[in-house]
Amino acid sequence: MKTMTGLERMLTTLKHQEPDRVPHGELHNPAVWQAIAPEGGTYEDFIELLDIDCVVGYDKLTGWNWELQDPEKGIVRDIWGGLQRLTSNQPSPMSPALAGPQDLEAYTPPDPDRPERYLWLQAWVKRWKGERACIAHATDVFDIARESLIGDVPYFTAMIQDPDYIQQVQEIILDYNLRYLKNCIEVGADALFITGDFATTTAPMVSPAMTRQFLLPPLKAAVELGHAHGLPVLKHSDGNIMPIIDDMLATGIDGLHPIDPMAGLDLEEIKKKYGDQVTLCGNVSCAYTLCEAPQDEVVREVKDCIRKAGKGGGYVCMSSNSIHSGVKPENYVAMVKAIHEFGVYPLDLD
C-alpha cells in the first residue's frame, strides 16, 4: 500500500476503510507540546516532529479570548460573558452571563465573523492543506449554555420549568456555532469536531427524552452543515453515554470520541456493536497510563486499543480525553511512536 498523507488516512478511516496505518491526532496542552517541540519551536513544529495526522484547533487556541478580570485570583470573562476561574490553564465556571430570561433582550452574543478568529486555521491551511487533516472545533451548545450563559442548576431547572428560555438561549449559541463553522469550512477546514460532555462517569446528565429534546438538535444541525459541504463531523463526550448512544448516532455523526474507559465503556464491545455506523476515536488512558505508567505499558495499551478497534478501519487511536497538562511528555511520544509502529495495515496484533 502506498504511503498516505495524514489527511488521506483520516478520511479513509472515516469511510470505514483501512488506510496505510491507524491515524492519530489530539487536543494538546502547551505544557506537553512545548516540552517535546524543538527548542524555541512552534506548535506547528511539534506537529511535524511527531508526524501527527490531524490537528484540531479553534479561535480560542491562544488564550481562549479571555478578558482578564482579577489577575491574582485567575478570574477571566469568556467570550460569552461568563466568569471563569483558571486552574492549570483550564476554565472552571463561576458566574454565568445571564441571571434569567429578563437579561436576554439586552444580551449581545460574540461576533463569529471577526477575522482574527480564523488566523490559526488560515495558517494551518496554508501550511498543511492536503497533507494533514485541519479540523475545526466548536464547543457544544449544551456546554456553553450551562457553563457560560445560564449556569448548571438554573439550566437543569429551566428544562422543566421554562423550556422556552432554554430554547432561546440555545438558538443564540447555535447561530454563532453554525456561522463560525461555516466560516471555518470556507477557510478550508477538512472536518468538524464538536466537544462537550453529555454524561458523567455513571450516566447521562439528563434523561434520554430530554437529551433528544435539548441536546441533540443542535448537534444534528452542526452535522447537517458539515455534510452539506462534504465534511465529516466528530463528537466528543466523556462519561457513560450508553443509554443515549443510539440517539447520538442518529444525528449522523461520523466519529465518536473518546469511548471513556473511566465510565466503563469497552472499546472492543462498542466496535463490535457500532463499528459499522461510526468511526471510534480513543481511548488510551490519560487518567493513568499517559500520566504515570512506564513507557512499555503505554505501548501495550496502544497495541491493545488498535487490536480491539483497528480491524477494517474506522478507528483513530487517541487518548481517553486529551493530552492535558498532567500527561508525561515522554509517555505521549511513546504513544505516538507505538501507533506508527503497530498501527500499520494489515494489522498483525492477535
Rank of each mutant, 00 (worst) to 15 (best):
Gly313His: 03
Val56Ser: 04
Lys311Thr: 08
Pro93Leu: 12
Pro109His: 04
Phe46Ile: 11
Ser237Ala: 04
Arg212Met: 09
Leu49Val: 03
Met4Asn: 10
Met242Lys: 06
Thr157Ala: 14
Pro71Phe: 07
Arg300Phe: 02
Ala138Gly: 07
Val336Arg: 12
Thr211Val: 13
Asn283Lys: 05
Leu11His: 06
Arg117Lys: 13
Glu72His: 13
Val55Tyr: 05
Ala133Gln: 04
Leu265Gly: 00
Phe46Ala: 12
His229Trp: 10
Leu256Lys: 02
Val327Leu: 08
Leu215Gly: 00
Ala191Phe: 05
His16Gln: 15
Leu267Glu: 01
Pro23Arg: 06
Asp152Met: 15
Gly100His: 11
Asp20Leu: 13
Leu49Glu: 14
Gly264Leu: 11
Gly196Pro: 00
Tyr165Phe: 15
Pro217Ala: 10
Lys182Gln: 11
Ile173Ser: 03
Ala123Arg: 15
Thr13Met: 04
Thr201Cys: 08
Ser148Glu: 02
Met1Gln: 09
Leu98His: 04
Phe142Ala: 08
Val233Tyr: 00
Val336Ala: 10
Cys184Lys: 01
Val76Arg: 04
Lys311Ser: 07
Glu26Asn: 08
Ala221Phe: 03
Leu14Cys: 14
Gly312His: 05
Asp266Arg: 07
Ile253Pro: 00
Gln69Pro: 03
Tyr43Val: 05
Asn29Lys: 06
Gly151Cys: 13
Arg300Ile: 01
Arg179Glu: 04
Ser320His: 04
Leu119Trp: 09
Val55Gly: 01
Gly63Glu: 10
Pro115Tyr: 06
Asp254Pro: 02
Asp111Arg: 13
Ser285Ala: 07
Gly196His: 02
Asn240Glu: 06
Gly25Pro: 11
Lys271Thr: 01
Ile323Thr: 08
Glu147Gln: 15
Lys15Thr: 13
Gly230Asn: 11
Pro91Asn: 11
Ala228Tyr: 00
Pro329Glu: 11
Pro91Cys: 10
Pro204Tyr: 06
Lys126Trp: 06
Glu224Gly: 06
Thr139Gln: 13
Leu216Met: 02
Glu330Ser: 15
Glu297Pro: 00
Pro30Asn: 12
Ala222Leu: 03
Tyr107Ile: 11
Gly188Asp: 09
Gly63Ser: 07
Ala203His: 01
Asp143Cys: 13
Ser322Asp: 07
Pro232Trp: 00
Pro261Gly: 08
Asp45Trp: 07
Leu174Asp: 01
Val299Asn: 07
Met205Cys: 09
Phe156Val: 15
Met205Asp: 00
Arg114Phe: 07
Ile79Glu: 09
Ser322Lys: 06
Ile339Ser: 03
Tyr274Phe: 15
Ala31Tyr: 10
Pro204Val: 06
Pro91His: 05
Gly239Gln: 04
Asp51Thr: 03
Gly100Val: 10
Thr3Ile: 14
Thr202Asn: 12
Asp276His: 15
Arg21Pro: 08
Tyr107Asn: 14
Val316Ile: 15
Glu8Ser: 14
Phe198Thr: 01
Glu330Leu: 10
Gln277Val: 00
Cys54His: 08
His236Thr: 01
Ser285Glu: 09
Asn331Ile: 03
Met210Lys: 07
Gly196Ala: 09
